[in-house]
């Protein structure tokens, strides 16, 4: 029914072993090149190279074909449209651009695990760490992964309930309960995070420690601050009750 298996398969091809930043630079470079260059020979060469790179990562056949099918349809329509207008070189150039970049992007997707890609993105976000500490990004990513099946479950349950009442064609009977249940779930999750002190002190922990209060002005804290605990990915099943 709902498949969350991406394109990635653990293998030992050269592209699997290449570092993520190299692959992203390659994608950026090839994208700029294909857009800047409109020479037919170069276009065919780059397209062939990208398709070979995609093949070299030994991707799962069915999922790859599904991923490429959309692009190939678009490229075919574009080609037909340009041929119709009589612009043969431009047709080749545009179709080549579309297919080569899609093939390269699929090659990267099929050779990079999600963890590696998320690590790379977290590294890219390092300059933002005063606003967005890396731990917070980690917490948000793992909570999102946890809430995808939860949101899908809420939506599915709302549809089953609507069908039981004979309202399965009534969009309001599905969307109103599922949306408000989703917000309620989020607020409960927020309370659970707050109770555990997760991500509450993301910035405070990085900041310089507060100077000790002096004199009679010092006000003793009424309540102890919640304990700072390490964010454990995959932990939020405790907080969904």
């Amino acid at each position: 029914m709902i498949s969350l298996l991406g394109l990635y398969r653990p293998r030992r091809t050269p592209l699997h072993r290449a570092p993520v930043w190299f692959k992203m630079l390659l994608l950026l470079g090839i994208s700029i090149t294909t857009i800047a260059v409109s020479d037919p020979v170069t276009t065919i060469g780059i397209t062939a190279a990208c398709l070979l790179l995609l093949a070299s990562t030994l991707p799962p056949l069915k999922a790859t074909l599904k991923g490429m099918a959309f692009i190939i349809v678009i490229a075919a329509l574009t080609t037909l449209f340009q041929l119709w207008r009589g612009e043969y070189v431009r047709a080749l150039d545009l179709a080549g651009d579309l297919i080569s970049i899609a093939a390269l992007a699929l090659a990267i997707t099929s050779s990079t695990s999600m963890g590696a890609m998320l690590d790379f993105i977290t590294t890219l976000a390092t300059p933002l760490k005063w606003i967005l500490p890396p731990e917070t990004i980690g917490v948000m990513v793992s909570l999102t992964l946890r809430s995808i099946p939860e949101a899908a479950r809420i939506l599915t349950e709302a549809r089953v309930a609507a069908r039981a009442r004979g309202l399965d064609r009534d969009v309001r009977a599905i969307l109103f309960p599922s949306a408000s249940r989703t917000v309620g779930f989020a607020l409960q999750l927020g309370q659970a995070l707050h109770a555990r002190g997760i991500a509450e002190h993301g910035r405070a922990a990085k900041a310089t420690p507060r100077p000790a209060p002096q004199g009679d002005d010092a006000v003793a804290p009424v309540l102890p601050s919640p304990p700072v605990r390490e964010a454990v990915p995959g932990d939020p099943e405790n907080s969904t009750s």
Binding site: L143, S147, I148, A152, A186, L189, L193, A199, G202, R203
Partner: peptide, 25 residues
């Protein structure tokens, strides 16, 4: 720290999950 408090983080994550789930169902 209000922008990153637990409630905001939960709302952000759950809505990202909702957007993702809306393409899956």
């Amino acid at each position: 720290h209000r922008g990153l408090a637990g409630q905001s983080i939960a709302l952000i994550a759950v809505f990202a999950g909702l957007i993702a789930a809306s393409t899956l169902v």
